[in-house]
């Protein structure tokens, strides 16, 4: 019996979200008395045996030039073959962009019950129950998985990475790889900035900023903090900011350690996507703004005065200035 963890990577590096998934899968294996193993498709520059640091004993490394393109259909068939050959009972993904496409397909292929967006270790004393966010973070649900094989996609930033020392055995398996139907014709990566879903700190701004030309102070604060940028929906709708920065119930849901909301009123739909943040700081000139009710720290004041001062104060603490 084994717990199989899918290890995602981009630009040759294993993603932080996959390290979370590895740590989570290893804990589940301990809990149920199984071995934890990883599966990685394609080429990486990371030293694979060092993935043993997360507690896995083996990494199944499937290399084939056909895997250079991410095609959910062909990837699913590969992962399912690995799961079958290794008798995996629980298969873990990160609930990141790749995991959201792969995990449900692998579940169907393995005839496994699926839980997306898990936020805690399963409760296994009475059945197999997984806790997840529902209603866009406004509530939690327990999902009981009834099938023998189970697939879980772990929310990003929901489980801390635990790293020790270990050596994983790298194993290659004989697996059929289908030619991908999908052909990549272009990529556009936001260079040098932190990915929004994985970011530990997010600086977000709303209509209170008045116009796209005023984002410099927001960008300065974000780069000082090493934070990712986000925005409210009307800001993205008005094309002040790209749509992939739109957070909330109908945008991207995030759970950073620190969320700084500047000139955002805190509408219920906005809160829904950000209320899993560990610490929320609100800067708003209106003391009645609903966001203060959901905040841990706040400053009532004009963003145009407060934000540059905040950037300076952060630089001082970080020893940058």
């Amino acid at each position: 019996m084994s717990v199989l963890i899918y290890i995602d990577h981009s630009d040759g590096q294993v993603k932080k979200s996959s390290m979370e998934a590895l740590s989570y899968g290893v804990k589940i294996a301990e809990q149920i008395g199984a071995v934890a193993e990883g599966v990685l498709l394609g080429d990486v520059s990371t030293d694979l045996p060092s993935l043993g640091n997360f507690g896995i004993k083996k990494v199944y490394h499937i290399q084939n030039s056909l895997l250079q393109i991410f095609d959910a259909q062909s990837y699913t068939k590969v992962i399912a073959q690995v799961a079958q050959q290794t008798s995996a009972k629980i298969i873990i993904f990160s609930n990141n962009s790749a995991g959201k496409s792969l995990a449900p397909k692998v579940a169907v292929r393995m005839n496994a019950g699926y839980v997306s967006g898990a936020i805690a270790l399963p409760e296994t004393s009475n059945g197999f129950n997984v806790r997840k966010n529902v209603f866009s973070g406004k509530a939690f649900a327990n999902v009981e998985v009834k099938t023998e094989i189970k697939v879980i996609a772990l929310n990003v930033n929901a489980f801390s990475v635990s790293e020790g020392t270990g050596n994983a055995e790298v194993v290659s398996l004989n697996i059929d790889v289908e030619a991908p139907k999908v052909k990549v014709i272009g990529t556009n990566k936001t260079k040098g900035t932190v990915s929004l879903t994985e970011a530990e700190t997010v600086v977000s701004a709303g209509r209170g900023l008045k116009g796209p030309e005023n984002w410099k102070i927001i960008e300065d604060l974000a780069s000082t903090l090493g934070a990712a940028l986000a925005c409210s929906r009307p800001v993205a709708d008005a094309h002040w900011r790209p749509h992939n920065e739109h957070v909330g119930q109908t945008g991207i849901a995030i759970a950073p350690n620190l969320y700084i909301a500047i000139g955002i009123s805190g509408a219920i739909q906005h809160l829904a996507g950000v209320n899993r943040s560990k610490v929320i700081v609100v800067i708003n000139k209106d003391p009645e703004a609903p966001f203060f009710k959901a905040a841990d720290y706040g400053i009532v004041g004009d963003a145009f005065e407060v934000v540059p001062k905040l950037t300076q104060a952060v630089k001082k603490v970080k020893g940058i200035a």
Binding site: Y114, E144, K293, Y297, I299
Partner: peptide
């Protein structure tokens, strides 16, 4: 039936916001 939503609960309420004066941004950072 593969999965069953067996129970729900709401997140605990926030303790309340700590307000810092706009004249004292350093305090927020501290």
């Amino acid at each position: 039936t593969q999965t069953v939503f067996s129970g729900f609960n709401l997140p605990p309420a926030k303790a309340g916001v700590k307000l810092v004066s706009s004249e004292n941004v350093e305090e927020l950072v501290r």
